[in-house]
Design a protein around this nucleic acid. Structure first.
Lengths: 116, 116
DNA sequence: TAGACACATTCCGATATAGGCATATGATGG
DNA sequence: CCATCATATGCCTATATCGGAATGTGTCTA
């Protein structure tokens, strides 16, 4: 079995840096494909392909505007990711002291061990 | 060019569901490989491989404890992900009304368009 | 030192990329 | 209807998986 499809969920979709950049750009408002491609220094086909993936996982919406197709953000798709990661937040805030101590223990190896 | 390595960063590492499950389990404390494998219904080699990836991106630490190797969470590696996704948070809270309106526009297509 | 137990690594096969390039599809204006 | 501009898709190559099976490495303990 190979790696899961990038279209399987938002986690896979945002694993690709260029797709993340697209999403960031779209925070500024809707944009046509060509503009995205130019601003991100990628080919138009690549931009279209990335946008297809983002569309399939529901992170982006399209609407036609004359000849152009304007892509806009649909950030709701990121909620699952935000929530999942949020489940770890307390580990680097609230409990930061204990965490540091904990990691230090791991590094030194309470039973003698390399952190690697 | 193929897809980026799963070890390239946390985003890629957590794209795999089983690795996310491992991290969730580790929130409860350190665990040896076999236990993780058993609890997640995967083979020991698979568990080891996933743990290797998580280790390489710094999401997990190991320490030897006798025959066993205890894996523990290092949630700091998730901060970049949390922060990146957090940049979109306002889009589904603060501005939720405007967002809904916005998405509705996209769906109907101000210029007549299918959302697809 | 040998045997057992815990874990890591290697080899294999099947698959899904990301990117480049060429080309098809779509909508607009004349 | 045709030329044009904006996008989408198809084809191809190289690569990095994920999973299974077998095997290597490391660490006790008798």
């Amino acid at each position: 079995m190979a790696r899961a499809a990038t279209t399987s969920d938002a986690f896979n979709a945002i694993a690709e840096p260029q797709r993340r950049e697209i999403l960031v750009l779209l925070r500024g408002g809707e944009r046509p494909v060509t503009e995205l491609a130019r601003d991100l220094g990628m080919s138009q086909p690549q931009a279209s392909k990335h946008l297809r993936v983002l569309r399939e996982v529901g992170l982006v919406r399209v609407r036609g505007a004359g000849k152009q197709r304007l892509y806009g953000l649909d950030p709701r798709g990121l909620r699952p990711v935000h929530e999942w990661v949020g489940g770890f937040e307390k580990f680097w805030n609230e409990t930061f002291d204990r965490l540091d101590e904990y990691v230090r223990d791991l590094e030194q190896g309470k039973a003698g061990e390399t952190t690697e």
